[in-house]
Computed example of a mutant assay.
Amino acid sequence: MEWTLPQWGQLMTLFMIAIAMGMDAFSLGIGVGMRGILLRQAILVSITIGFFHTVMPLAGMVIGRVLGLFVEKIAVMVGGGLLIFLGVNMLYHARKQGEAGVLRDLASFWGIFLFSVSVSLDSLSAGLTLGLFEADTLLTMLLFGWMGMLMAGAGLLLGRRVGAWIGGYGEAVGGMILIGLGLRFLL
């Protein structure tokens, strides 16, 4: 089966959004990894983040599709606005990262759970936006889950090796990608 141009466009757009969402997990992973984390903890945290990066967009997409039935005319504007809001929020947190610490208690189940949920909340909002646009659900879940897991793991492992100079840049790049995509939808 050969893909059409719109299908390729959707794949590339979802891939870029998945990378942007994964940047948050990557940058926070670096911060946590710099404070020292065991390899088995890094793997467990990465898998948990991947799980929540799969579930959160699904929940958001379901809500977005229901809302999309009622607000079809303004769905594109709302979706673009949400992406811009998420991007600005990520830039804000990248700037404040040095001041406010991230959840670092990854030795307990609840610590891992709360860290993974907090890192994945942006994916819920992105899923809401994608639900308004009626994006492919399975493709979104797979891309978000894998990218969240891989980027969180890469951040945790990289954080074990490098200094604090890279931490905030990953989240800032992700925020700029979301702002650019949001502007694309609005213009």
Rank of each mutant, 00 (worst) to 15 (best):
L150D: 05
H93Q: 15
K73R: 14
S120I: 00
R161N: 11
L187E: 09
M147E: 07
F113P: 00
L58A: 12
R35K: 08
G50A: 06
V119C: 02
F26S: 01
R161D: 04
M61W: 10
V173Q: 04
V76F: 13
L124N: 00
L143Y: 02
D105N: 09
A20P: 03
V66I: 15
G68M: 14
M90D: 12
S27H: 06
S116M: 03
A154C: 10
G182W: 01
R161G: 07
G175N: 03
G145S: 03
I112G: 05
M23Q: 02
A59L: 13
M23F: 10
G9W: 09
V45P: 02
V88F: 03
G145C: 03
A172T: 00
H93W: 13
A20R: 05
I63W: 01
G98W: 10
V119E: 00
W8Q: 13
A107V: 02
L114Y: 11
T129Q: 05
V76Y: 15
G50S: 06
L91N: 10
F26N: 00
M90E: 14
G145L: 03
T129M: 05
G50T: 06
L187A: 10
V45W: 06
V66G: 12
G167L: 15
F52M: 04
A94S: 11
G155A: 04
L156W: 01
L86S: 13
S125P: 01
Y92K: 12
